[in-house]
């Protein structure tokens, strides 16, 4: 017997609505939980001074610096490499066994637990290349970690650019490269930015890969060769070692605001970009 369309429609609304509601409620609860415990501890002093007694007292300034710089290094390295790979795969090669293997490889890499990247970074950058626990080791490791995401999202975005645009550009005597940078990349930019945001988000929240490669120094870093601690690592160590729950949640709250700030900035920039192009 066929279920009447009215009932299936009502069921669909109910089930989909519930799924959405549960998701939103869980997210809001998590953020509210962190903010409720963390926000009262945040002060200007907390944001602008160095930690004392392993983080039991004082602020988190060096970890803020680390949280800004490590993802920045990672994205500066991973963005050109990732977009370059995506352009090469989609515009300069034909679909064949090699591109399939590369794509399969990136998909696998995207699903590997971050601690594996941490171990690789520790063995390769920290030990073999002798970079030690440093921002450079950490940034390079994070770059490798987010590379698959950036490659895949960029490739999707590039493939979504209508083929007709490429034909038109070609018929107007553009070379492949001119077509890529004048037509394909500008139109793929919103999609590429999504990959970048995902990558930054993953880097900011990363602990395992960072502890193994950037270390956990609480000193203010002065060069790329210095060890540094990010807010995520700081939170992890404060909570894990039972040093200070108050400071841990305050750090977490700052982290939440930081991620929010990054995302809002990115949306704002994206909207401005789109508005400018569609005026």
């Amino acid at each position: 017997m066929r279920i009447p369309p009215k009932i299936t429609q009502a069921l669909a609304v109910l089930i989909l609505g519930t799924a959405t509601l549960v998701t939103v409620v869980v997210l809001v609860l998590i953020i509210a939980f962190v903010l409720k415990r963390g926000v009262p501890e945040i002060s200007w002093e907390f944001l602008s001074t160095k930690p004392q007694e392993m983080g039991k007292a004082g602020g988190i300034l060096p970890t803020i610096v680390g949280t800004v710089l490590l993802p920045l290094i990672a994205i500066v390295i991973a963005l050109p490499m990732g977009v370059g790979t995506a352009v090469y795969l989609s515009e300069y090669t034909r679909e064949n066994r090699v591109t399939k293997i590369i794509r399969f490889g990136t998909d696998c890499l995207a699903g590997i637990p971050s601690i594996i990247f941490g171990l690789f970074g520790y063995i390769f950058f920290v030990t073999i290349l002798g970079m030690g626990w440093s921002m450079l080791s950490g940034g390079l490791t994070l770059a490798i970690m987010i590379l698959p995401t950036i490659i895949r999202t960029s490739e999707e975005a590039i493939r979504a650019v209508p083929q007709a645009y490429r034909e038109v550009s070609c018929s107007l005597a553009a070379t492949s490269w001119e077509t890529v940078h004048k037509v394909v990349l500008p139109n793929a930019l919103p999609g590429i930015m999504t990959g970048v945001m995902l990558g930054i988000g993953r880097s900011i929240g990363e602990t395992a890969a960072v502890i193994f490669t950037a270390g956990s120094s609480l000193m203010m870093p002065t060069s790329l060769n210095d060890s540094v601690r990010t807010m995520s690592v700081h939170f992890y160590l404060l909570a894990r070692e039972g040093i200070s729950n108050e400071k841990a949640y305050a750090t977490a709250a700052v982290l939440v605001f930081a991620v929010l700030f990054v995302n809002l900035t990115a949306y704002w920039m994206m909207n401005r970009f789109i508005a400018k192009r569609s005026s």
């Binding site: 007709a164 645009y165 107007l172 005597a173």
Partner: peptide, 26 residues
């Protein structure tokens, strides 16, 4: 040897930029 396609296919940019696309490349 220039070409006009079956479907109108302006590039997603301004009228001006569409027209000067080829000359700028040159």
């Amino acid at each position: 040897v220039g070409m006009v396609f079956a479907l109108p296919m302006p590039l997603p940019m301004s009228i001006y930029d569409n027209v000067v696309y080829g000359p700028r490349l040159s």
